[in-house]
Design a protein around this nucleic acid. Structure first.
Lengths: 190, 190
DNA sequence: TTTCATTCTGACAGTGACTATCTCCACCTG
DNA sequence: CAGGTGGAGATAGTCACTGTCAGAATGAAA
């Protein structure tokens, strides 16, 4: 399954993303062109677009997006999705390369266009999560709850950023989303 | 205050938006260029950008954005913001011109780039609403709740769209956001 | 009414993100 | 190894968007 092509593709994507972040950190997001990133990573501009689609996705592209429907269903617990979220956040925080989440997440809030791309990611995530929540609620309520969950997380993440990223992200999620959690606490009893 | 210039500006914006929607309906969003819209509305392309900033905002630009901080504070009731939202939605639905909300809202969900612009609008709205909710909760919880509120509304709106826009939007908001409302029901007692 | 300052408009040129298309070469398969 | 496939690079083109500048309409002061 990990064919030679697929392997090389993953490696190229990682290299492109690293080069892009290096350049962005050095000269600012807007001042760097795709052409320069491609040259730095030793690929063509076409490939950068093939892999990432947009310039913003060089930063906003999340491992989360690549999950299959089955994997997602395994992660999300319909009875307590916020616990699932917390678990995923903790894994994300410890799983980042040496520099931690700050380097990438910084751009979510510092660069408006990247913020937008992040909102798009979350929107797509909510669309995938909503059906999983429809077991306990109706379709409309499930859709609302999925959005509340996903974008509520974004709000907590922004608070983390506004505070300078000192404490852990999970702390902010746990504190900020505690009220939302009450919404599912009732379901468990039924 | 309604100076001659301001008056003409409002009229021009309305005309540009109408021409844009006409062209979009006729030939599709992507197939229409700003230049064509400008020509149809009898203004320069520069003016279109001056007024709306982006092509997407020709559709997504909401009266909501133009509210001052004071007006917003008057609308949003921190003790029951969902009631405030419902009120605003009902006013919006009845206040639309003859064709109803469908014509514009359709693009929110049919055209991906417009959807993005709408998310950006909502994001900005949440940032403004969060401080108003901070009286009852902490800053982080207020931020999360503001996002849950605003993007939850978006979810309900999408359900309305998916169902073909037959029933009223307020119905979907009321049904879909009922669980969220419980979060503030506790505050009233205290 | 004339004059001056301000502000908005249109025109123009430029940038760069993104798309479409083609050719070519490296990988998989029989 | 031969033929098929799909992904990579190169190129040209589109168009959203920006910056700048001169000129015209506005509003106020002389």
């Amino acid at each position: 399954m990990a064919s030679l092509r697929e392997q090389w593709r993953r490696e190229a994507m990682r290299r492109i993303q690293q080069c892009a972040l290096d350049l962005f950190d050095e000269r600012g997001f807007d001042a760097v062109t795709i052409e320069e990133i491609a040259k730095a990573a030793g690929v063509s501009a076409s490939s950068v677009y093939r892999y990432f689609g947009t310039k913003e996705n060089l930063v906003a592209a999340d491992e989360f997006t690549t999950l299959t429907a089955d994997e997602l269903a395994n992660i999300v617990d319909p009875a307590d999705p916020i616990a699932s979220l917390l678990q995923a956040v903790r894994r994300f925080e410890s799983g980042q390369r040496d520099d931690g989440p700050w380097r990438r997440v910084r751009y979510f809030f510092a660069e408006p266009s990247v913020r937008l791309a992040t909102l798009a990611e979350l929107d797509r995530a909510a669309q995938r999560i909503a059906p999983l929540l429809a077991e306990t609620h109706g379709a409309t309520q499930a859709r609302v709850m999925a959005n509340a969950l996903v974008f509520g997380y974004f709000g907590a993440l922004e608070r983390w950023y506004d505070d300078g990223g000192q404490r852990s992200i999970a702390d902010y999620v746990e504190e900020g989303m505690a009220p939302l959690r009450r919404l599912w606490a009732g379901d468990q009893a039924s």
